[in-house]
Write a protein that binds this DNA or RNA. Structure first.
Length: 814
RNA sequence: GCCGCGAUGGCGGAAUUGGCAUACGCGCUGGUCUCAAAAACCAGUCCCGUUUAACGGGAUGAGGGUUCGACUCCCUCUCGCGGCACCA
């Protein structure tokens, strides 16, 4: 029967076959090279969408390729199962988040199995399982012991819709990453992880990832971490026994500092506000505005503090202002202001009539003063003994001078902030901390882990953790002094769960350790990671940090968790990402039931290279369906002709062989180097076309090629490939077959087509023996009528000959 | 504003990294088969000129440059996408 009539039953049949034979379960084999292929695990929302399908199909091609290349491939899957949607569902449909989550997992597991992906299901994990989140708590305690976790009251991002705080990384342009509400600021006492301690190492790690991660992702991370080199300078405050420290990257402009500006939240501001009416009413006015408004404000405002500072380089007395454009979160929260060379200071100075003193002049060209600040580097002027130095030299020398006088130091600052992990929600890992009236804050003892998430909870979604009201859970005893204590009721950010799941996959059932080092030493690091670019500055930073922490604990040997990264593009319909709210969704299930999994997979791989956006097209799906049936018919044809005796024309046979091996070589390179599955498939189509037009289809040569083609195709359309493989008489799974090797010696034909250009324009193509000497080639070409016509009335100036490739005749008009 | 990426037929996309632009697929046109349609198969399909072939000319967002030769390298600009955003 033809594939198009029975693909539904056959696809299921082969899925069961693979599962039964357990062919995708690897065992640790130190003698064999390993390959860990990982896809970003899904949140169990209920149904898989096209984005999932794309992600997992790409992963499957890569895993399958290396498996067939003889590597020991580990390709696990699991569930990022904690998170807010489960709670929202609980409120909406009155089901327990756990029930909702587990049912979704059941459903999605089934859907995933119908994609025919070569997963090792034996190592499946779900992060909501206590056996998993126990280790989140264990890591938390390890970090606590090392001073990497702390609790602090501070202004934090608050999403009013999700009713919880958010980490910095989860606020994108002032908007919640999940629900797109505007984020507000709240002052709360929260748990932070000191990821900033690892800022430098996260940057250094990029050296290992260069060439293996998309450049784009590295740039995004680099900007996010935002290292800048500069000088920290101490300014004495006149009449007060205190100093204000500022950070600047432009120490070369210090002679141009005509005032100091301090953030409204700064200690100094608080101090001044107590005695200065102007200042206190100013900051009151500022604090009244919502932060959103403050951030968007175009006008800079401020107030004179009544105090003066002394510029340590020239003893000059300069006013100190409180200003709203100074950020408390960055640097020291105070700045030295050089209006001549910083546009923000320039605008402020204009408004408050503060002198603008030029201290840098351009090396070439004109300065932009007095119309706007001149910001580029240049030559120092009006700077005493430093005048004449370049900006670059000046920064060094000024810093050295300040250092010698004890007024400053070289300093690095980062934009990266500590990771806020407290969430005022139920469906997450309980933070393993108790508060004792006598002993204060205490981490839970290791032997008492996991701190189980209680089941009977009233979920309201209103502003506070629902755990607060579970009294028999909250109230506990201090393990130190025995007196009454309360549990921490916030849960952890779910990005904690996904920060180390790739390691747990290797040893998912371990109850004594997060994982057995002997096992992870074999599998880690992940050789190929595949997922969306939206995680560039979230998950991909967190897990890199976590890995480095595990490295410091001696749990892993590698510095980086993911050796190679592929970020796949979105699946769109009508130009924008598929989304429920826009109503532009194509359901994978519907497509699969109409055309089968193989067609769906083929379309997704063929329509665009994996990194690019993929626009859904029903018509193009039809094209893939057609190709699949064409392959099916080709094999049918071959099998029917198998026993016919052929009087084969050697020339045609060699031509086919040469074309096949050339294409196979390209396919190999397409897959290995650039993940270009679209062109690899195009070349499979070419091979198929060549076979169709081969006069002796069914002879030994074509039979061999067809067998190898089926193996190649099993990467993309495994079900049909398996079916055809068995039809061709094989008993083992095609997915365990060896990937065919191209033969260089068969690619080379003894003749080549050489394009002949005249002045760079193609005039003629000549077929010659390979390796023909230049002189002989010239003789041959110059006799050609077309060439003669093209160079008539001209004098040949020069011949450009690239051997076996191209000839260009350069002429001059007579 | 700063940083990064991109622009190739009617469409998705190719082009050995400076060497025959438009592979492969979709769509379209014509044909074969059929009472008819669908499917399948065959042929054609960048644009302009020409009576067909042959041929000639022009095209890789725009303009300039380097080169025997540029989709590819350099400069200027336009448009689109993404990230960050008063980061001192």
């Amino acid at each position: 029967m033809a594939w198009q009539e029975e693909f539904k039953e056959k696809e299921l049949y082969w899925q069961e076959f693979w599962e039964k034979e357990k062919i995708f379960k690897p065992t640790i084999r130190p003698d064999k090279k390993k390959f860990y292929c990982l896809v970003m695990f899904p949140y169990p929302s209920g149904k898989i969408h096209m984005g999932h399908v794309r992600n997992y199909v790409i992963g499957d091609v890569i895993a399958s390729y290396w498996r067939m290349k003889g590597y020991n491939v580990f390709h696990p899957i699991g569930w990022d199962a904690f998170g807010l949607p489960a709670e929202n569902a609980a409120i909406k449909h009155n089901v327990h988040p756990e029930k909702w989550t587990k049912e979704n997992i059941e459903n999605m597991r089934m859907q995933l199995k119908h994609l025919g992906i070569s997963y090792c299901w034996e190592n499946e994990i779900a992060t909501c399982d206590p056996e998993y989140y126990k280790w989140n708590q264990w890591f938390f305690i390890k970090m606590y012991e090392r001073g990497l976790v702390y609790k602090k009251k501070s202004l934090v991002n608050w999403c009013p819709k999700c009713e919880t705080v958010l980490a910095n990384e989860q606020v994108q342009q002032g908007i919640c990453w999940r629900c797109e509400s505007e984020v507000e600021q709240k002052e709360l006492d929260q748990w932070f992880i000191k990821i900033t301690n690892y800022a430098e190492r996260l940057l250094e790690g990029h050296n290992l990832l260069k060439d293996f991660w998309p450049e784009e992702v590295l740039v995004m991370q680099k900007n996010w971490i935002g290292k800048s080199e500069g000088t920290e300078i101490k300014f004495k405050v006149l009449d007060l026994n205190l100093q204000i420290e500022v950070f600047t990257t432009r120490a070369d402009t210090l002679f141009g500092a005509t005032f100091l500006a301090v953030a409204v939240e700064h200690q100094f501001t608080k101090f001044v506000a107590e005695k200065n009416q102007n200042v206190s009413s100013y900051i009151e006015k500022i604090f009244k505005k919502p932060l959103q408004e403050r951030k968007l404000a175009k006008e800079k405002t401020g107030v004179f503090s009544g105090y003066y500072a002394i510029n340590p380089i020239n003893e000059e007395k300069i006013p100190i202002y409180i200003a709203d454009y100074v950020l408390m979160e960055y640097g020291t929260g105070a700045i030295m202001c050089v209006p001549a060379h910083d546009q923000r200071d320039f605008e402020f100075a204009k408004q408050y009539n503060i002198p603008i003193r030029e201290v840098i002049k351009p090396v070439f060209g004109e300065t932009t003063l007095p119309y706007s600040a001149y910001e580029p580097d240049g030559i120092m002027i009006n700077s005493d003994k430093f005048s004449g130095l370049t900006s670059q030299q000046g920064r060094e020398k000024v810093t050295e001078y300040l250092q010698s006088k004890n007024f400053g130091n070289k300093k690095f600052y980062y934009k990266l902030k500590d990771w806020l992990i407290s969430r005022q929600r139920y469906w997450g890992t309980p933070i393993p901390v108790i508060y004792c009236d006598n002993c204060g804050i205490l981490p839970v003892e290791e032997k008492d882990l996991p701190v189980m998430l209680p089941k009977n909870v009233d979920i309201t979604g209103k502003g506070e953790s629902p755990l607060k009201y579970v009294e028999d859970w909250v109230n506990t005893k201090c393990y130190k002094c025995g007196s009454k204590a309360k549990r921490e009721t916030d849960t952890m950010d779910t990005f904690v769960d996904s920060s180390w799941y790739y390691a747990r996959y290797c040893d998912p059932k371990n109850t004594y350790f997060p994982f057995d080092k002997k096992i992870t030493d074999y599998w880690l690091p992940v050789d190929q990671y595949i997922g969306g670019i939206e995680h560039a500055c979230m998950h991909l930073i967190y897990s890199r940090f976590w890995h480095k922490f595990m490295y410091d604990l001696g749990l892993v040997n590698s510095e980086e968790p993911f050796s190679r990264l592929l970020t796949q593009g979105m699946v769109t319909l009508g130009g924008s990402a598929m989304s429920k709210s826009k109503g532009n969704i194509v359901e994978p299930e519907k497509i699969i039931s109409k055309y089968g999994t193989d067609t769906t997979r083929l379309f997704i791989l063929f329509a665009a290279p994996p990194q690019k956006q993929l626009e859904w097209s029903d018509a193009a799906v039809e094209g893939c369906w057609r190709f699949i049936n064409r392959v099916d018919k080709l094999i049918e044809k071959v099998i029917n002709k198998k026993n016919i005796f052929f009087n084969v024309d050697e020339k045609e046979k060699i031509k086919l062989l040469s074309k096949y091996h050339k294409l196979l070589k390209e396919i190999t390179e397409d897959i290995e180097k650039e993940y270009q599955f679209n062109t690899a498939i195009a070349k499979c189509m070419e091979i198929t076309n060549s076979l169709y037009s081969y006069s002796y289809l069914g002879d030994e040569t074509s039979l061999q090629i067809i067998k190898e083609l089926v193996v190649v195709l099993s990467l993309f359309i495994p079900h049909l490939a398996e079916e055809l493989w068995h039809k061709l008489g094989e008993k083992e799974s095609v997915r365990l077959a060896k990937f065919p090797k191209y033969k260089e010696e068969l690619i080379n034909e003894d003749t080549v087509d050489i394009p002949v250009q005249v002045n760079g324009k193609l005039k003629y193509v000549v077929r010659v023996q390979k390796g023909l000497e230049d002189e002989d080639l010239k003789d041959k070409i110059i006799k050609e009528q077309k060439v003669l016509t093209a160079i008539k009335d001209c004098e040949i100036e020069r011949w450009v000959i690239i051997k076996d490739k191209l000839v260009n005749i350069v002429t001059k008009k007579l």
